[in-house]
Design a protein around this nucleic acid. Structure first.
Length: 270
DNA sequence: CGCTACCTGGGT
DNA sequence: ACCCAGGTAGCG
């Protein structure tokens, strides 16, 4: 559920509605949702803090707080953030609640329970989450075919798997990888190091287009305020197995690459 | 690298 | 009654 467009929408909503506000307290409903510090110490770190900013690195949501700490949230597969009135009873899948000023809560929810939060001084956070090992951001203005070439050239393995590796390139999830490869007309089973210059150009353009359009449509999920995004769940190939390819009408194929569902057109991706 | 575990709701 | 999931860490 949560790929980069969905995460980015939440970050933008946080900037609009949460940044600058005071945190009155935090309540951990599910201890395992706190990566660090120990869940018992977690709420104390939010005393007398306010939210100073909101950003994203790969699929991590990063919220600097006043006083030098940074809160990191990872939504994993099905996590989400919601801004709701504090008097609203928490849904059963609520993991963590941050009580804000003006009678509102920021809540981390996840029916699967995989989503995680962590808070620490920024340097320690970066170290423990290994943020400095992440690859270049696909949505950074400096991302281009040369950057992509450098990241793919030295890695072994299937192109699809390398594109999902956030240390190679930060920004693609399973859906967006499949859609990007279809747009570029490249077979996901190809070796990552084998792309020609022209293919690298096409793939880089496709990645930026897929992510940018996903964001323009506000993702596939509900935003911070509960409004549904307009991006289609399956656009070109994702979860469209046996349906016609939008380009050549051949039946979309499905297989597993690196343990992940992969959808592609066997006719026009090579 | 390839595999498993994590864990619950929704789809088949 | 089964599966299975758009992510990641951790294992061999």
């Amino acid at each position: 559920m949560a790929e980069v467009p969905e995460v980015e929408i939440l970050v933008r909503d946080l900037r609009e509605a949460v940044v600058g506000r005071a945190i009155i307290g935090a309540n951990v409903l599910r201890q395992e949702a706190v990566r660090f510090p120990p869940a018992s110490e977690f709420p104390l770190l939010f005393c007398d803090r306010s939210v100073a900013g909101a950003g994203r690195r790969a699929k991590y949501i990063l919220m600097p707080l006043s006083g030098g700490l940074t809160l990191a949230v990872h939504l994993m597969l099905w996590g989400t953030l919601k801004l709701v009135p504090s008097d609203q009873a928490p849904a059963p899948e609520t993991l963590i609640v941050w009580q804000l000023d003006r009678g509102e809560d920021l809540r981390l929810l996840d029916k699967l329970g995989y989503a995680r939060a962590a808070v620490a001084p920024h340097e320690i956070l970066a170290e423990r989450l290994d943020l400095n090992s992440l690859g270049p951001e696909a949505l950074d203005p400096s991302f281009n075919a040369d950057v992509l070439a450098r990241q793919l050239r030295r890695r072994r393995g299937a192109l699809k798997s390398v594109l999902l590796n956030q240390r190679a390139l930060a920004g693609l999830g399973n859906r967006d990888a499949d859609e990007s490869l279809w747009l570029a007309g490249i077979d996901p089973r190809r070796s990552a190091a084998s792309l020609s210059h022209d293919e690298l150009e096409r793939l880089q353009t496709a990645i930026v287009k897929v992510l940018t359009e996903g964001i323009a449509l506000r993702g596939t999920q509900r935003d911070l305020f509960g409004r549904k995004g307009q991006a289609p769940h399956g656009r070109y190939v994702f979860e469209r197995t046996d349906k016609p390819c939008p380009r050549c009408a051949t039946a979309i194929a499905h297989l597993r690459i690196g343990g992940r569902n992969t959808h592609f057109c066997p006719q026009c991706q090579f």
